[in-house]
Nucleic acid binder design. Structure first.
Length: 251
DNA sequence: GCTAACCCTTCCATAGGCGC
DNA sequence: GCGCCTATGGAAGGGTTAGC
């Protein structure tokens, strides 16, 4: 996926990338093996060769951060296949819109980890956890989770970030996370079925005022299912989107 | 080598969507 | 309700190609 991408090159947009694919060039190695590419001067080709070699080197060194700034934000999903085993699915719960963070859920594809305010949620631990990963995946995280983390903890993440809302929108799936889950027939457990973000706020206040553990456990379950479902969505939709983008070559 | 035409990217402004 | 993103459309500018 990433090794068949050229959109990170200067002055290369969707049309130029498509033009490259149309010439039978589907990987960085294909590009480097060609001496001439239609629509591209030799000087430019040589310039792009050096950029591709640099990208190859960084990819093989697992330096995902190299791609954070050179790949357009909406195209960072192209890193998913390569870094999926080193990716973290993240979801933040708060006391309301841009309120205080109450919970941060993390999922690495095997285990979930929940950081809870008043227990184990602090800047150092969150940073320590996030540093383990090469790629962060959220739903609408670009507009919510990341700004909230920045505001609350002053943490600026360097890893590339895949916002699944953008992946969904590119596939014509518009709506919130719960709508997407329904569309993909992803089931939730009975205890949290039908719950929405506002309910998470309610559960937190119930827990704070009553100290009844069942409210906190339910909120944790809701958050865990959020992050686990992010992986299911990513696994289902990202290959479909890539196929769709590449498919345009054969239109 | 120069020039014009074409193509494509970038930039800007605006509107709308989504998280809790 | 806030913050950030995408989508869209138009204008401007740069790169490439083709013709002379």
């Amino acid at each position: 996926m990433i090794r068949g991408s050229f959109i990170f090159l200067d002055k290369v947009g969707y049309k130029t990338e498509r033009n490259i694919w149309l010439q039978g060039i589907h990987s960085w190695n294909d590009f480097l093996a060609k001496t001439k590419i239609d629509g591209m001067s030799l000087m430019r080709k040589r310039f792009y060769d050096s950029k591709i070699l640099k990208a190859k080197k960084n990819l093989y060194n697992d330096n995902s951060c190299y791609f954070t700034n050179i790949l357009p934000f909406s195209e960072q999903y192209r890193l998913y296949n390569y870094f999926k085993d080193q990716a973290c699915f993240l979801d933040v719960e708060t006391t309301g819109y841009y309120g205080d963070i109450t919970m941060v859920g993390l999922y690495n594809g095997y285990d979930t980890k929940t950081l809870v305010r008043g227990y184990n949620l602090n800047k150092d631990l969150l940073l320590q956890e996030l540093k383990k990963y090469k790629l962060i995946i959220t739903y609408n995280g670009a507009s919510f989770d990341f700004p909230v983390i920045r505001k609350y903890f002053n943490i600026y993440l360097r890893q590339p970030h895949v916002d699944l809302k953008i992946v969904c929108q590119k596939l014509g799936l518009r709506g919130g996370l719960k709508y997407i889950e329904k569309a993909l027939q992803i089931k939730r457990s009975d205890d949290v079925e039908g719950m929405r973000g506002e309910d998470a706020v309610y559960l937190w206040w119930q827990w704070r005022t009553t100290r009844n553990r069942k409210y906190l456990d339910l909120l944790k379950l809701y958050n865990e299912e959020d992050v686990i479902n992010l992986k299911t969505i990513a696994d289902k939709l990202i290959p479909v989107l890539w196929k769709k983008i590449k498919g345009c070559v054969y239109d």
